[in-house]
């Protein structure tokens, strides 16, 4: 049996492609939901961390530290298998979304903080001297400038979230990886696994390249 029959079997690949694609949509849906929720949560967290009342600040710091320390897989298993004991039963999709979003929010908050702190102090002073309130100062002056600084690291974070969606297969979510292992069992051939790996790469490699481009551009401008 040649390597092509075993690992790159075209017929098996075509036969299991529909299954893989059905998994891909779930992966993409899960990833995008978690990225968006993580961003929204991260923005809330960073505003609390930088401008909240003291106890809220401490709470935000605690949250960020804890969720940057916990392995996503551990969190996912806790959410899926432990929360039902307190009456909270989530579907695999929402358990995975929750776990990924909770962690992504912590990372997004740290990235956004670096972005906000990267905006020159004079910008805050100019806005305050003109009479801007805290909210308008953020939305109109600071965040638009911070966004430029945080797009590369936020894209990196989005890539990580997308990759971590594969962990959801351990709570039996029919995502791309789960479907691929399923298909491998059905076809008695590992080609679907190779196919899944290729799909992940095709999906994320352009983003990885994009981050690289952003970074060289920012570096060049910084000089």
């Amino acid at each position: 049996m040649s390597i092509f029959d075993t690992f790159l079997n075209w017929k098996v690949f075509i036969g299991t492609l529909p299954l893989l694609l059905s998994g891909l949509w779930i992966t993409v849906g899960l990833g995008l939901t978690a990225i968006v929720l993580g961003l929204v949560g991260g923005l809330g967290l960073v505003l609390l961390r930088l401008y909240g009342l003291l106890p809220l600040r401490a709470l935000a710091i605690g949250y960020i530290d804890v969720f940057r320390s916990v392995p996503v897989l551990v969190l996912l298993i806790v959410v899926y298998y432990a929360l039902p004991f307190v009456g909270l039963r989530l579907t695999a999709f929402w358990a995975a979304t929750l776990a990924l979003s909770l962690v992504s929010a912590a990372y997004s908050a740290e990235i956004l903080r670096a972005g906000i702190e990267g905006v020159a102090r004079g910008q805050f002073e100019a806005a305050r001297a003109l009479g801007f309130g805290a909210v308008r100062q953020m939305s109109d002056i600071i965040l638009p400038q911070a966004v430029k600084l945080v797009i590369p690291p936020l894209t990196s974070n989005a890539i990580n979230v997308m990759k971590d969606t594969a962990l959801a297969s351990v709570v039996a979510m029919p995502d791309l990886l789960k479907q691929a292992t399923q298909a491998q069992a059905l076809a008695a051939n590992p080609t679907p696994l190779i196919g899944a790996a290729a799909i992940y790469i095709v999906m994320l490699l352009p983003l990885v390249r994009l981050v690289g481009l952003f970074e060289t551009r920012l570096n060049r401008r910084a000089r």
Partner: peptide
């Protein structure tokens, strides 16, 4: 009270016109 800074502190993401117009709109 208006203030003019040594390092200008103009808003780099806004046009000159918007730099001048934004505070009357937002404040």
């Amino acid at each position: 009270v208006g203030m003019v800074f040594q390092s200008f502190n103009l808003f780099p993401h806004l046009t000159v016109l918007r730099n001048v117009a934004i505070a009357p709109v937002r404040v």
